[in-house]
Design a protein around this nucleic acid. Structure first.
Lengths: 115, 115
DNA sequence: TTCGAAGTTCGTAAAACATCGAACAAGCTA
DNA sequence: TAGCTTGTTCGATGTTTTACGAACTTCGAA
């Protein structure tokens, strides 16, 4: 479990980001992270097997949408809001607003832990 | 070749639109149409077979991104800018700006016809 | 050092997608 | 009517995506 590679802003591509955000589970994950707070992997709740959740988080990470930090055996995920905004201005907000208005990604949430 | 069905604005889904806009050919088509002018099918130039182009135009149409109008054997395509804007505010512009800055979809263009 | 917890990776299977050429349907035109 | 033009649809193929469980790796705890 080595530290995963994250793309620099200039390495992000529109197509990869659009692809990453065209799956309801991943949009749900992004919504959960949209308050800017870093979340523990285990805190994330989605109706898929953990290997599948790992896969989705990888797609988001590889596209540059999220950043994953390792700490011991745990890892923490956060949205790369500023990087996305500088690279693709307005895109993330437009998607988040649309997802909110449309109730996309509600199947994803947080486990009830002491926040 | 009956008139194709187009989704009403309330039938459009974010996921379908994001999916439609996560392919470079389709982003290129949207860019070509982004000046708001209606274009003839035959005017559209993309490095794929015509059956494939037809497929891409269908994905865009089914997602609600474009409208296709039939006239005799010809058909004409246009961007549904206002519908998209009302349904997903800011999304199309963000994608178009990013695509422009990033040179996404340049393989798509117009045939040199008397405009 | 043995065990459990946390994620990732692997192997696999099913579905979706992109692509092509061929066949087709519908409307002009000769 | 016969033929041409314009796009769509069909059938096939290879790739990508989503998904699962099992196996694996790391680290922390007992």
């Amino acid at each position: 479990m080595k530290q995963a590679r994250h793309p620099e802003p200039h390495e992000m591509t529109l197509i990869a980001v659009m692809g990453a955000l065209s799956d309801p589970i991943r949009v749900g994950l992004v919504r959960v992270l949209s308050d800017g707070r870093e979340r523990g992997w285990g805190q994330l709740r989605a109706p898929v097997a953990k290997s599948t959740l790992s896969h989705h988080l990888r797609i988001l990470r590889d596209a540059g949408v999220t950043r994953t930090r390792q700490e011991g055996t745990r890892c923490y995920v956060e949205l790369r809001r500023a990087d996305l905004e500088s690279r693709f201005p307005g895109l993330l907000d437009a998607v988040l607003n649309a997802a909110h208005a449309d109730d996309v990604g509600l199947q994803v949430g947080l486990n009830d832990t002491a926040s």
